[in-house]
Design a protein around this nucleic acid. Sequence first.
DNA 1: TAAAATCTGTTGCAAAAGCAACTTAAAGCT
DNA 2: AGCTTTAAGTTGCTTTTGCAACAGATTTTA
Lengths: 207, 207
Amino acid sequence: MGIQNNLSEFIENAEKNCKKIQKKEFKKDEIITTYIEKRNQICILVSGSADLVRYDSNGNKSIIERFNKNDIFGEFFYTVSMNNELFVKAKKSCTVLIFSYEVFKHKCTSNCKFHENLVKNVYELILHRFSSLNTRIDLLTQRTIKDKLLGYFSILSIENHSKTFSIPISLTDLADYLSIDRSAMMRTLKSLQEEGIIKKNGNKISL
Amino acid sequence: MGIQNNLSEFIENAEKNCKKIQKKEFKKDEIITTYIEKRNQICILVSGSADLVRYDSNGNKSIIERFNKNDIFGEFFYTVSMNNELFVKAKKSCTVLIFSYEVFKHKCTSNCKFHENLVKNVYELILHRFSSLNTRIDLLTQRTIKDKLLGYFSILSIENHSKTFSIPISLTDLADYLSIDRSAMMRTLKSLQEEGIIKKNGNKISL
DNA sequence: TAAAATCTGTTGCAAAAGCAACTTAAAGCT
DNA sequence: AGCTTTAAGTTGCTTTTGCAACAGATTTTA
C-alpha cells in the first residue's frame, strides 16, 4: 500500500546502524509510550499491533487509533491538548523502533548515508499515515451507517483487487473504527444482505 | 499552534532561494491543483484559503477539507484511490508554494543550507497537518451532535485562552466540517443555550 | 442600489441510530 | 477438558438525526 519493499529491510537494520535508535519488545497489554508530556519521541511499529487509548476525566476508556506494521506514531504527531491521558498499549506482542526527532536534525557525520535513508524512509511512513488518516476521515464523514460500511468495503475490495474479501478486524473493532454502535451496525449488515447488496459469511464479504 | 515564527519568514523567501520552488497566485474559484494523477507535487498555502473538493460519480460536490495559511497539501498526501476526482479550489485569493518531492531527495550542493531548512520546516508543516487531521477525527468520532459541538468549542476555548470566543467559520461550514446536518446543528445549538451550557450571540460563544 | 446569492434560523415528520439487555458462538487460558 | 473471556448476533424501545421546505437577514456582485 504505497510502502516500498526496501523499507522493511531498512527498519530491520536501523538499530544496528545507529546507536540513537532503540529497538524494543513489548508484550500484550504493556504500555509502549504515553502522550502526556512532550518528549519529541518518534516510534515505528516493526511488528504486532497497538492501540492509542484515551482515558477521559470520567475514567472512560476509548480506542482512538489502531497501529499496525509500519505505522509511525508518538506524541510528536499528536497535539497534547486536552486534559485527557493518552497511552499506546500493545494489543499483541510488538517490536518498536524508538528515537527522538533530534536524530533527524543532527547527522552523525556530514555525509552519513544512514541518516539520509532515515529521512527518506520516514517520509514514506508519514505519507502512509496521512493516507490512513484521510481514509478514516472519508469514512467518518459518511452520514449513514450504510454508507460508512459500503465505503469501507469498497476500500477493502480495491486493496484486495476482488469483489470478495474478508474483514481484517473483528466486527466489534470495526464498529469502533467507524464510530458507530455495534448492534446498529449488525442490523445494517443484515439489511444490506436482505437487499442483496452484499453477501456475508462470517467475516467474508462479497459485493 | 506549534508552528515556529521563523517558518513564515522561511516560506516568504523560499522562491528566491531555490529555482525549483515556484510561488503562484490564484484568484477565487481558480483550481490550484488536482489529485487525479500522481505528480509528487507538494503545495504550501502561504496566504488565503482553499477547499479540497470532490465530485463523485453522480456529480455531487462535497468539500473534504479546508486549507488555511501554512497548510501543506497535494496528491502526495492523499491516496488517489477511488474513481472520484479531487480538486483544490481557491476560496479566497491564494498564494501557494509549489514544488516536487524530488526537491527533498536531491540537494543542490552537498551542504546546501537552504535544503536543510526546507526539510526541517516542512516537518513542522507536516506535524501541523497531522494535528489538524487528528483533531478532526477526534470530533468526528464523537457520537452526538452535542458532543461534537462541545468538543469543537473546547478546542476554540483552549486556542483562545478564554471561555469566550468567536467561531472562525460560518455555521454552514461548521456543520460540514463536523459532517452533520445544519438544521439539526442549529437545533442542538439552541438546546445547549436553553440548558445554560453555552451562551451564543451571533458567532460569539461563551462556555 | 437593486438583484442575486449565501447564510441563519425554524419546524414537522420520518427514518436512522443509540442504548440496554439478552443468547449463542468462538477463542484463550490453566 | 472445562472455565473464562471476548466476540457475534438479535430485539424492543427511545432518542437523535437527517431531510425538506420554509422565511428572514446578510453579503456579494453586476
